[in-house]
Design a protein around this nucleic acid. Structure first.
Length: 430
RNA sequence: GGAGGGCUGGCCGAAUGGCUAAGGCACCGGUCUUGAAAACCGGCGGGCGCAAGCCCUUACAGGUUCGAAUCCUGUGCCCUCCGCCA
């Protein structure tokens, strides 16, 4: 959520920074918020004064009654009038605060200055790792490899749940399980994350805390009688672990690694990337979530991004790191690096991880604070997260990268202890 | 799904319509000490404010009242038992 104090103190700076997102509606929202904020402060000030008056009168009356006196009718009339004034202003304050909350929840995070200007076409590749295998007519796309190996069945998934719900069979299912275990172990052992298995459904309050709701409610699957949401990413349950908490500053920074399935309706993405595993409604993902002090978050973001990239290096998948432009970063993010793995069969870089710092945006919405030292005032933490990494596109890159002319697929050495073999063989093969 | 009990600060726990929500534990700072412990002093929910100070806070949201932790209504969560169940 936007920092109203900052908006009040430096309105031009906030406006200019948000304008870089390229959404004129946001600037209108800002104007309305500034007007409401002024109104709220004036009502709250008057209300405080009235309450102070009532509290003083109540103290005095109590003393009087305790001493055996009674309150004369004219005093009661006076007190009642005071009470009515307070009620009226409380109602006015409630109204203006509700209106503000309704608007503030739709204001995106302020992009950091180092982001390139412009839309997605201005995204900047900051580094490339590995040697991307050049596309060739002999290289097959992952859906052909997967179906030929008998490990991927898109048609049956569509039959039982609709398109975008893949089914993995046999070695494919085992590969999914191996990848999840491999990634979690890597992050726990090498990068110091604490493993957590959270609920796979969350309340509306949790979705609001991380920014998926109210603006993007249509992108999520929602259960009707209970108003619970299927998690679109482990970011939601894991970040909300500490909602409404004040963390011990000495414990920062720390991170969680969590596996969850992810459910996304992909409303508005219909027709894009529909082949194979490139865009699906349910997928598995290992997610990294970090909580830091504000001064540490830029360095933590770089570290976090490299924790995700370490997975791709271990899997021997060439990848590139892309810094998103101000017009392309997500609603809650202040800065995002996408990690894209090279998939030679489709000849595309596939986004397998998105590594973002949310600065204090989620922390303010979810009220996640820390106390630097005993006695200090609580301050907002910074939250960050990165996929570490998402499975379907990683599997696509693995299949397309490891494919051999005999129809088998060679797997990276790091997976062998988890998968139990160094390659996927076609049915009937060796 | 049904019945009952409960929810006060990091933890325990008092206050049943009235002055500043007791007290203890834990924790932090200080005095003392070679050091530590003990003892003693101070601090120890949140917001606004340069400050003085003001406001809010007894799970949450409403209501009654001159005045609510306390009375009323609704909601959430926890516990116990019954039923069902992997």
């Amino acid at each position: 959520m936007i920092d109203l104090k900052r908006l009040r103190a430096a309105p031009d700076e906030v406006r200019a920074a948000l304008a870089r997102r390229g959404e004129p509606a946001v600037l209108t929202l800002l104007q309305e918020l500034e007007r409401l904020d002024e109104r709220r402060r004036s009502i709250a000030g008057a209300l405080d004064a009235l309450k102070a008056e009532r509290n003083a009168a109540a103290r005095e009356d109590a003393r009087h009654v305790k001493a055996g006196g009674t309150l004369p009718p004219e005093v009661l009339v006076e007190r009642r009038a005071l009470g009515e004034q307070i009620s009226e202003r409380e109602a006015a304050l409630r109204d203006v605060e509700a209106e503000m909350a309704g608007k503030a929840l739709y204001v995106p995070n302020v992009p950091l200055p180092e982001l390139p200007d412009g839309d997605a076409s201005n995204n900047r590749t900051v580094r490339v790792w590995g040697d991307p295998r050049p596309p060739a007519a002999t290289l097959r796309p992952h859906w052909e490899i997967g179906e030929r190996l008998g490990i991927l069945d898109l048609a049956r998934g569509a039959k039982i749940a609709g398109s975008g719900f893949p089914v993995f069979f046999g070695a494919g299912a085992r590969l999914v399980r191996a990848l999840v275990a491999f990634m979690i172990d890597l992050h726990v052992r090498e990068h110091g994350y604490r493993e957590v298995e959270p609920p796979f459904v969350v309340t509306r309050a949790s979705m609001q805390g991380t920014g998926q709701v109210p603006k993007f409610e249509d992108d999520a699957y929602r259960t009707v009688p209970d108003d619970l949401f299927l998690v679109p990413t482990a970011e939601v349950p894991v970040t909300n672990l500490h909602r409404d908490e004040i963390l011990d500053g000495a414990s920062l920074p720390f991170g969680y690694v969590a596996y969850t399935p992810c459910f996304r309706r992909e409303a508005g993405a219909a027709g894009r990337d529909t082949r194979g595993l490139l865009r699906v409604h349910q997928f598995d993902k290992v997610e990294l979530v970090r909580f830091t002090r504000p001064d540490e978050s830029p360095a933590e973001h770089e570290r976090l991004t490299d924790h995700a990239a370490a997975v791709l290096r271990a899997l021997e998948l060439p990848y590139r790191v892309v810094l998103l432009a101000a017009g392309d970063v997500g609603f809650a993010s202040a800065k995002t690096y996408d990690l894209e793995a090279w998939a030679p069969g489709v000849g595309q870089w596939l986004e397998v991880s998105s590594s973002s710092t949310f600065t204090d945006f989620q922390a303010r919405r979810a009220s996640i604070r820390y106390r630097a030292r005993a006695g200090d005032k609580p301050a907002l933490v910074h939250t960050l997260n990165a996929s570490g990494v998402a499975l379907p596109r990683t599997i696509a890159a693995l299949l397309e990268t490891g494919q051999q002319s005999d129809g088998s697929v060679v797997l990276p050495a790091a997976l062998v202890p988890y998968f139990g073999a160094d390659r996927l063989n076609p049915p009937g093969g060796p």
